[in-house]
Amino acid sequence: MSFLELKDLRIHFPTDDGLVKSVDGLSFALERGKTLGIVGESGSGKSVTSLGILGLHKGGRAKISGEIWLDGEELVSATPEHVRTLRGKKMAMIFQDPLSAMHPYYTVGQQIVEAYRIHHPVGKAVARKHAIDLLGRVGIPQPDRRVDSYPHEFSGGMRQRAMIAMALSCDPELLIADEPTTALDVTVQAQILDLMRDLQQEFDSALIIITHDLGVVAELADDILVMYGGRCIEYGSASDIFERPEHPYTWGLLGSMPRLDRERTDRLMPIKGTPPSLINVPSGCAFHPRCAYEPRTDGKATTKVPDLLETEGGHLVRCHLSKDERRGIWENEIKPTLESA
């Protein structure tokens, strides 16, 4: 069994308007030392998944079913108290907005010390030294002085570094980064991505990076999972997803982005329509109202949810089009327009 394995995870929230199926049957596996990128638009269920793995939906109104296996332990059926002992130590999270994820009343050092001492029976002085070490390692200048600074005294990039130091304080084996660079400028984003890559190699941890930016996942991820409407619609290695994508939604994402590495195209090719409401997910394939290839499925797309099937060597696609049709469309229709000047 893999280090982290999700089996048919479902996280549903009952609301006054109906049942919100944020995550609806998600399965994937991740090994130590590997990076998984989860890509999707807002409301696709990517953040809910990460909070679910950390057990942060326990005790709330969420209805969780399925299995989450972390290093041989099942977490969905585990008690909240037990998951709490794992959180921070075995798995940790880097949040999108470090200003709201850190406590404004406590110094950065105090917050790292607190996290460390919950899991390690050491004195304050030892923990403080550990915090200074970590701040130095994530590239904060003069860590012995900055350890006593408050979060507001740090710039955005430094706060994100401090956040990473906090997440790393107990050497977690699973690190989840939810939009870690979305709030940062490009030059700082590049610094943080480099840092995360280096630290992962050093700690040999499993990393899940959640983002809407395909550029960021292309930089870091070994494997990529594309989510839409609470389900995985395509999964594969980074080169599968970027060089041989087979799902119309993935094509749409690639066509929507203006790219600096290619000649400027005259027009972007957006996906029509808007992402679905999770209360009222379209019948059949959730993407069918926005899909240009829906007519080629003989109406199957509107009635039946396609299965997530393997096309080749671990590349999974959830689509009613046949493998040959998809490859034909990609090679003859999509790829030329993406690469044309």
Partner: peptide, 18 residues
């Protein structure tokens, strides 16, 4: 510094890191 969605280039690019 702009991340480029091209897996092949991730090792080849010469980066200027501010």
């Amino acid at each position: 510094a702009v991340p480029v969605p091209d897996v092949k280039r991730r090792t080849q690019r010469d980066r200027i890191r501010l």
